[in-house]
Design a protein around this nucleic acid. Sequence first.
DNA 1: GCCCAGGGGTAGT
DNA 2: ACTACCCATGGG
Length: 310
Amino acid sequence: MTMRDERQESWKIQVPFHLDYCLNCGQAFRWKKRGKHWFGFINDNLYRIEYDESNKTIRTLRIPGDSVRTTADYEGENRLQIERYFGLNDSLSTIRESILSNLRENGYNWFALKFEEIFSKSLGLRILRQDVWEVTVSFLLSTQTNIPALEKKLDALCRLFPENEVRYDGESFYRFPKKGTLALLCEEDYKRLGFGYRSAWLCQLVRRFSESDFHSLRTETYERKLSFLLTFPGIGYKVAHCILLFGYSVLKAFPVDIWISRWIKEVFDIEGAHDQLATWGQTAFGEYAGYAQEYIFNFCRNLAPGGREI
DNA sequence: GCCCAGGGGTAGT
DNA sequence: ACTACCCATGGG
């Protein structure tokens, strides 16, 4: 591995962007921070990324792996893939105005002001464009699991396959295993990793997941996407909405987890099942309800008193 | 030990 | 359709 095999690019970002929030708000679980650098995979290529807030500059380094095809070989392609992955084409001002006008139309004027504050506190948080397979497996395993525990589960799973290893600076990083690779495992293997009752779900998913089905789902309607996902054991409304939002960029998807349902109860005094609260969220926040949800989640979990502080 | 976690399935109303 | 209860496991 020589230095000129590594592709470095840096450029100024002209829109609001917050790298830490993007990678640390519970939508992706395998990015690792080492000092100022984040390490993770985009389209199966390992990247080292840092963002300098003071001069709005992102610095990226693509780290060559041994056995993966090079998907970013010409000048500028790294940048295009990175911009797409981080949702830099989403207009946050448009999204913000859409959410606020929906709140007002629904009679939540009193809350619109609060939401402006929530939005400005997490400004630059963006919905990532992740691989659907990895998102599906990750959120299938997320049930009744806190985020640090989920990250450990996924790490343990990835480490089973040394062929996916990419080394850099004395540390090993692993590409996420493909469906065909996971098909080599059985339920007992998953239980040994501590997946518990989710092991059987994952076996079913690996057996039934069809790359073409999940790909062609992109052109289906919202309702058909949702009902298809719900046919898998272990995928209920919450997990399905996460797959829609983080895997299919369906920006009106509104995942209702324990943080969000507690927050809705506290602020609006509304309770209900996951699907009812999801519908409520989509009505209240509109076509970008998923963005509203993520800003609220980041606010509750990372920024509010009692939250985690990044 | 206790309580909780980016919930889902199911049996009983 | 709604509810209550169970489900494995790890972290704080």
